[in-house]
């Protein structure tokens, strides 16, 4: 085994945690990501493969499903899989084995940084960041939008737990934007 050290998107060796008011903002490096895009004619097979990977049916647009391995919709016939990094470092290989050539699978773990917001009153933070209707945005909902000029996935895992996936290279800018919005809201 190699012994290369991992750095988080913010450049540290430990994930950063910030608390302000009722909200906790944490850097979450512990997830592997892989994108799955159905090939022509492989749409049905891809949906079935995703079900085998996550348990429940492949999520519809705007949704996330699954437990340990989850999938969320990212575009027509495309999903992103996520799973704990420690147990699923090569999630993309597992997915590729499952889709059996009916879908294109790409490792995306390094492409995204993830920040989780936890606490009561997340709507006040989110409404300062992006044009999401926080009344209809319920657990299991996923949307992609722009936060401070950065294209991000916003995932509602629970009413008091929202994940934001943004481009890894801009992690510091995104983190600053989230923290500023927290301070502005509370």
């Amino acid at each position: 085994m190699h012994n290369l050290t991992v750095t988080t998107a913010l450049g540290g060796t430990e994930p950063r945690i910030d608390m302000h008011g009722p909200i906790t903002l944490s850097e979450e490096p512990g997830y592997a990501l892989a994108s799955v895009a159905a090939r022509k004619g492989g749409e049905r097979a891809t949906i079935l493969a995703i079900r085998r990977l996550i348990g429940p049916a492949a999520p519809k647009p705007g949704h996330i499903a699954g437990d340990k391995v989850t999938a969320f919709w990212i575009g027509p016939d495309q999903w992103m899989l996520e799973a704990p990094y420690d147990s699923h470092e090569t999630l993309f290989e597992q997915a590729a084995a499952e889709v059996k050539g009916k879908a294109s699978v790409t490792e995306q773990t390094g492409g995204w940084c993830r920040f989780d917001l936890r606490g009561v009153g997340l709507a006040s933070v989110l409404e300062r960041l992006c044009p999401i209707n926080m009344i209809t945005f319920q657990p299991g909902g996923v949307t992609r939008s722009s936060i401070d000029h950065l294209g991000c996935f916003i995932i509602c895992r629970a009413l008091e737990h929202i994940s934001i996936l943004g481009p890894r290279s801009s992690a510091a800018s995104l983190h600053h934007g989230l923290l500023t919005a927290m301070r502005s809201a509370y």
Partner: peptide, 18 residues
């Protein structure tokens, strides 16, 4: 709004930045 000063636009850094 908040996009002012050095936060006018995001900054992209490579993993070797530090």
């Amino acid at each position: 709004g908040r996009d002012r000063g050095t936060d006018f636009r995001p900054t992209r850094k490579t993993p070797s930045h530090k």
